[in-house]
């Protein structure tokens, strides 16, 4: 079937799913930043955020040794203070088998980016083969990128078919679909792409904001657009989709703002690491630092904490 022209096919989709007002949604999310989270509620939020971190290293310079320290950090973010382990480590496919040696059989999952991350610009056959390899090497979760070109030219069928093919290649592995929001340009497009993805993935699979490899990443605004899409999809179909903002969330305070958005948009059932994750590296040490401040009453010197993961 020939692809419909982008404007026409988008318009039809918006008739169905509705649009987003840019000014209104930014006003809404600004209110999250005025919430004041103190004492026990702060500790709860910080610990919850730690359990939601997909501790990530996605560099050309990654080595098995660096992945080993990443895994150690994910298992034990800090040596005192009873801080929980993170949800997962997130690595390139060739590092999956190295990560498995360290976190295999633990609570920490192995997530692997795949499908020619971050651009996705290789033949589908190659991308699928990459997914299968990562899964057979031991990845519990696959972070794929959508075909932004197909979306932007209105080839929604092709974009969805490719996601569906990756779902199949995943087998039992959980899938996270990266929309790469900064390349979709508008909140309307983010909402549209969210719906297209959600309609072909399984309950418990994720939609994810960004690769972290472009100029702008997760913001409260695009997080909100995607949370509202997840809510509308859930209320219409009963299928719960999980959410992962990634990139740009570097401080504990930011993470709490994102969690308040979850609390007030999707409610309690999304306040766990099966339904919400942070794709982050530097964030973890700031969470630990704030938790230690709450525990001891004082900020600890930087060298108290093991190496920040952005250095990996």
């Amino acid at each position: 079937m020939p692809a419909a022209k982008a404007p026409a096919s988008l318009r039809r989709l918006f008739d169905e799913i509705g649009t987003v007002d840019h000014v209104g949604i930014e006003e809404r999310v600004a209110k999250y930043t005025t919430r004041s989270i103190k004492k026990k509620s702060k500790i709860f939020g910080l610990r919850l955020a730690v359990t939601m971190v997909d501790l990530t290293t996605l560099e050309g310079k990654d080595t098995p040794g660096k992945v080993a320290s990443l895994c150690q950090k994910a298992l034990t973010p800090h040596d005192v203070g009873d801080i929980p382990s993170t949800a997962a480590v997130c690595v390139y496919p060739v590092m999956v088998k190295h990560a498995k040696k360290h976190v295999g059989g633990t609570k920490v999952k192995i997530a692997s980016v795949a499908t020619a991350f971050p651009s996705g610009q290789t033949p589908l056959k190659t991308r699928l083969a990459e997914v299968r390899t990562a899964v057979s090497d031991g990845a519990d979760e696959i972070d794929m990128v959508i075909n932004r070109g197909a979306f932007l030219t209105g080839e929604f069928g092709r974009m969805q078919d490719e996601i569906a093919a990756v779902v199949e290649a995943c087998g039992d592995a959980t899938l996270k679909v990266i929309l790469e929001v900064s390349e979709l340009e508008t909140y309307d497009n983010i909402r549209a792409a969210s719906f297209l993805a959600m309609r072909v993935i399984r309950p418990g699979d994720f939609i994810k904001t960004s690769t972290g490899k472009t100029s702008s990443n997760a913001t409260l605004g695009n997080n909100q657009v995607m949370l509202e899409a997840i809510r509308d999809h859930f209320l219409a179909t009963g299928v719960p989709i999980a959410m992962k903002p990634a990139g740009g969330i570097r401080t504990a305070k930011q993470a709490l703002h994102f969690l308040i958005a979850v609390k007030e948009t999707l409610g309690d059932e999304w306040l766990n690491n099966r339904r919400y994750r942070f794709g982050a590296s530097a964030l973890l040490n700031d969470l630990v630092r704030q938790l230690e401040k709450e525990r001891t009453g004082a900020y600890q010197a930087p060298w108290t904490f093991s190496e920040a993961t952005e250095g990996y």
Partner: peptide
């Protein structure tokens, strides 16, 4: 932490705005 079983669909289809995370 992560459970092994896949999340089930929620037949009630309503969101829960409860007190899991209370603000002090």
């Amino acid at each position: 932490t992560l459970s092994k079983s896949k999340p089930k669909t929620n037949p009630a289809r309503e969101l829960v705005f409860g007190d899991l995370w209370q603000f002090d």
